[in-house]
Amino acid sequence: MYQAHRPSRSEFVPIRNLRYHVRVWGTSAPARPPLVLLHGWMDVAASWQFVVDALVEERHVIAPDWRGFGLTEGGAVDNYWMPDYLADLDWLLDHFAGDTPVDLVGHSMGGNIAMQYGGVRPQRVRRLVNLEGFGMPPLQPAEAPGRYGKWIDQLKRLHRGEMALASYTGPEGVARRLMKTNPRLSKDKANWLAGHWSVPRPQAEGGERWEILGDPAHKIINANLFRVDEALALYAAIAAPVLAVVASEDSLGHWWKGRYTLADFQERLESVRDVRLERVEDAGHMLHHDQPGRVAALIEAFLDASRAGRPA
């Protein structure tokens, strides 16, 4: 079992009628802004433990479980919307940072949220790191009728109980699932993550099963079309320097089969006024698990460059 070098503590914060669970490492220090870590889809805040352990310098680190993930309940909804994450983050920063601009790091969905939030509240972000937060392929207006219909159909399937997440006989099964999804994940880390990514729940027929700490409603597509022009407007409004980090394994090529590529993503990044791009070798989409030391080093070097008066 992986041993955390810097154990976190749990805090619960009232956010928009929800009891938000937040993992916190270290204590606030006037000389350093809070470091806020945003996890991705079907992940949890504890997923950042390996990166936090790899940081050279002790930091005040804040990592929320997004609504409907981890120990944050979803509020009895049957689908989730991107604007809610932006508002949740704003409330969280009110609580943990006040008027102090934060260093914001997001992975995957969390990276998308970080980029959008950086455009909505540019004054609240000192530096921004986006780990494989690519956004979505372009969608055309002609796709709207079919997409709304698919959204309704998925809602009906959810309410019929047809979109439940898989459950497991024990945490070992969860760990095996994690390693199957990410072959680079070591067994000790998978075992550690399984204890934070799932919980045992009693079954009606007796006994218990380990269930993933994620609301199945997250599987419902967004009814609205993703608009590239809107995303680029948000990118253009970001005032903070941005570090975009990609893995050597091409996730976009695997997911979208040419419909949306790394070249397309890099073209979108041209809308950001101050951006640099880095690549992490021998890593897939879960690069913060695969190469936490390299990811931590990139984050620290980028965040500390302006503090030391050096160019990024």
Rank of each mutant, 00 (worst) to 15 (best):
Q140L: 00
Y2A: 09
V51P: 08
A142L: 08
A247H: 04
M179S: 03
V56G: 10
E281D: 13
G133D: 03
M115L: 15
L92K: 06
W192K: 14
R160K: 15
L93T: 03
L298E: 05
P7V: 00
P30K: 14
Q140T: 14
R19V: 14
I220P: 07
M136G: 01
H107S: 08
V44G: 05
G258N: 01
D103N: 11
Y85F: 15
G253Y: 07
L303D: 02
N79K: 10
Q140N: 06
R160A: 08
A76S: 12
L243T: 01
L139S: 10
L86G: 07
A263M: 04
G149N: 11
F134M: 13
G170N: 15
M286Y: 10
I212W: 07
V77W: 05
V129P: 01
P33N: 06
G106W: 01
Q3L: 11
K180Y: 08
I62G: 02
A237C: 04
V199P: 00
I220D: 03
L71A: 11
S271D: 00
L252G: 04
A142R: 02
H21I: 12
G214F: 07
R124I: 09
E249N: 09
N182C: 11
L93E: 01
P14W: 11
F134R: 09
A76C: 09
N79C: 13
Q203G: 08
V280H: 09
A312D: 08
V56Q: 14
V246K: 13
E270K: 15
N191D: 13
A87M: 12
R6G: 00
H107F: 06
G98S: 06
G26P: 03
P241R: 01
P202R: 00
A45Y: 03
E205D: 14
P34Y: 02
A301M: 06
G161F: 09
N182K: 10
P34C: 05
E278L: 06
D99C: 01
P141D: 04
L55W: 09
D282S: 14
V129Q: 03
M109D: 00
D229L: 02
L303I: 13
L93V: 01
L287S: 07
K180E: 04
D94E: 13
P292I: 02
G118A: 04
R16I: 06
D53Q: 03
N224G: 10
D78H: 14
Q291S: 04
M82V: 15
R124Q: 03
L104Y: 03
T181A: 11
R310G: 00
F96S: 04
P141E: 06
L178S: 04
D65Y: 02
I212S: 02
M136R: 15
H159I: 00
P7R: 06
D43S: 07
P171I: 01
W91G: 04
S248R: 12
A217I: 10
V242H: 02
A305K: 02
S248D: 13
